[in-house]
Amino acid sequence: MKAKNKTRIVRGLAFIILLAGAFTMVIPFVWMLSTSLKEAKYVYQIPPQWIPDPVDWENYIELWGNSRLLSGLKNSTIVSACVVLIGTFSSTLSAFAFAKLEVPFKKGLFLCVLSSMMIPFVVLLVPQYIIYTKIKWINTLLPLIVPGALGNVSMMFFLRQYMTGLPTELLEAAKIDGCGYFKIYYRIFMPLSKPAIVSNIIMIFMATWNDYFGPMIFINDERKQTIQVVIAMLNSYHETQTDIPLVMAAALIAILPVLTVFIICQKYFTESFAITGLKG
């Protein structure tokens, strides 16, 4: 009886801690949504209004007509789609070869590729800029797309570990049946790695969509800019006019795609942490 009471108290306490935490996590976003639905003149009310009265959709309508925001969304979509689709293909293909096939100088090559994770990005940033200037890639989406489309080292590493764990007999059996190597990858090993692939895709989509540093440095032309830079610029433009609701609405729009994908794939995402289990 006593022990039962004790677990009840512990659970109650845990629930209160979680609730307080969730409250802290969510309140800023509620505030953001609430502000975005206000008319500018009501923003400075003290005490603040939590539920806007009247609800004002004007900011969203105005943003929908903003050509820069739309082109930002379009560019971000192009970049993210290329990086996610082609990059996943490249990463999983290399992962498969490193895990299961015989490759000349396999160990050395693998270590080389891995070593690139050890260097902070700032070391490569300036020389990359110099190279892109030379090959006329500045002000195009190419610096954002091409490196990502060639794969993501951490995804490659993660999937190589995962595929190494799959039985090699599958490869041998398929070879005896006269199956080509690409088909073995495409028909057998890729489908078997699906959970690991999906969770990695979410992370890569998130990182690509939310990237600010890359587009800010490699692109100057506003029409080529991605959504993150567009809303940052929108802010510096509107800050002087203090149209805070508009800025909040734009920020919310920038978050929405990742949030949607995340909620849809939530199951895989939590699973990925279970898979990694972080043995290292």
Binding site: G21, A22, M25, V26, P28, F29, W31, M32, T35, M206, W209, N210, Y212, Q228, V229, I231, A232, N235, I244, V247, M248, A250, A251, L252, A254, I255, V258, L259, F262, F269
Partner: peptide, 19 residues
């Protein structure tokens, strides 16, 4: 709910934070 801040872009968070 706990993921929410992590998946949001830092730009959006900064704008929110400024406000």
């Amino acid at each position: 709910l706990y993921y929410l801040p992590y998946i949001s872009s830092i730009v959006a968070l900064v704008l929110l934070w400024k406000w």
